[in-house]
């Protein structure tokens, strides 16, 4: 079984890396990571240049009380806050495509019939797929983390401390789990739906609901505004509907729990700054558990959907 499992995992990675759609999304995602640092760097250098010019101008004007440097007190991690948006918008979509392609290609090409004419257990196959997707996504997130760390060294006076590097690593690890949930939804849909388009459409609708509809229901705020990672904690509107929705749904909203966790790890708000890693995790334990729970739920769903999948009775062949 171990040899078959490793063959399925290796094959999944090999095939995935040669798929155009995936490569395109991966390229955009990695480029945006690089841009995230670049945007942080240009913002900082521009503001610093303006600040220095303003200081000179004020000094020439004889002003003695010079306002402090705006970057004092802003954590180095703040330059990566845009990554939260990229995870929501590109990372999750890329994960859906990964999960979707992981099974739809075998169904469409009828390779699935060849595979199960070999002495392969269904459980081994689906486990191999899940491990393959997990390794691929973890590798992508690891590369993204390295890009962020390396690029931070090129930003003057913004080098990451050890604690900040640990927090950044944990942010990416949490983001990996967040994306993995969408990858599993993509895989589940690829198993249960009869057409390729429906198998892609359903996870995309779930993604839209999670990213835009659910947060709007619980906060009453514009969904695009909600994506803004610089938002101070979202204030619940005062209507009874939104109060009820916020109380009932916010604790189970995957997007809001991930945002809360990501914001505290990237220190986007003052109260999170310089908090030890353990304190940050403990304060957000419920969000961590919720992400883990969602992941386990969709993974188990995918697993059992595949165990029930009938290899020869697939309407996608027609």
């Amino acid at each position: 079984m171990a040899k078959q499992l490793s063959a399925i995992v290796a094959n999944e990675l090999r095939v995935l890396i040669r798929e155009r759609t995936f490569i395109l999304l991966l390229g955009v995602f990695l480029l945006m990571t690089l841009f995230s640092s670049y945007i942080g760097w240009t913002t900082k250098t521009t503001i610093l240049a303006i600040y220095k010019a303003s200081v000179l101008s004020l000094q020439h004007a004889g002003v003695t009380q010079i306002p402090p440097n705006p970057f004092i007190g802003i954590p180095a991690l703040a330059i990566f806050r845009n990554m939260i948006i990229y995870i929501f918008l590109i990372g999750s979509l890329m994960a859906i495509v990964m999960g979707h392609r992981a099974f739809i290609r075998e169904r469409k090409s009828r390779v699935i019939q060849l595979i199960f004419s070999k002495p392969v257990e269904k459980k081994t196959f689906i486990l191999g797929k899940i491990i393959g997707i997990t390794i691929a996504l973890f590798s992508i997130v690891l590369i993204t983390f390295l890009i962020s760390v390396i690029s931070s060294y090129f930003i003057p006076h913004q080098q990451l401390s050890l604690l900040e590097t640990e927090k950044l690593a944990l942010f990416y690890f949490v983001s990996f789990f967040y994306m993995l949930i969408f990858a599993m939804i993509g895989l589940w849909a690829a198993i249960v739906f009869d057409t390729e388009s429906l198998a892609l459409l359903v996870p995309v609708i779930v993604w839209i609901a999670v990213t835009f509809i659910f947060p709007e229901l619980t906060t009453g705020q514009n969904p695009v505004a909600l994506l803004n990672p610089t938002n101070i904690a979202v204030v619940t509107p005062t209507g009874p509907f939104f109060t009820l929705m916020h109380t009932a749904l916010a604790p189970i909203s995957i997007e809001q729990q991930y945002t809360a966790l990501a914001q505290s790890l990237l220190e986007t708000q003052k109260q999170f700054q310089s908090l030890p890693l353990s304190t940050t995790i403990i304060k957000n334990a419920s969000s961590v558990l919720l992400l883990l729970l969602y992941y386990l739920l969709v993974m188990v769903l995918s697993f059992y959907a595949f165990v029930r999948y009938a290899v020869t009775n697939d309407k996608i062949y027609e």
């Binding site: 040899k3 063959a7 090999r14 090409s109 009828r110 060849l114």
Partner: peptide
């Protein structure tokens, strides 16, 4: 077994395709 109209992994080479099925067969 060779089913009707199977198309294999088009992005993989012949060796990679055969290697995968050979490993599945033990």
């Amino acid at each position: 077994y060779l089913p009707e109209n199977v198309t294999f992994y088009n992005n993989l080479t012949a060796f990679e395709n055969l290697s995968f099925f050979a490993r599945l067969s033990g």
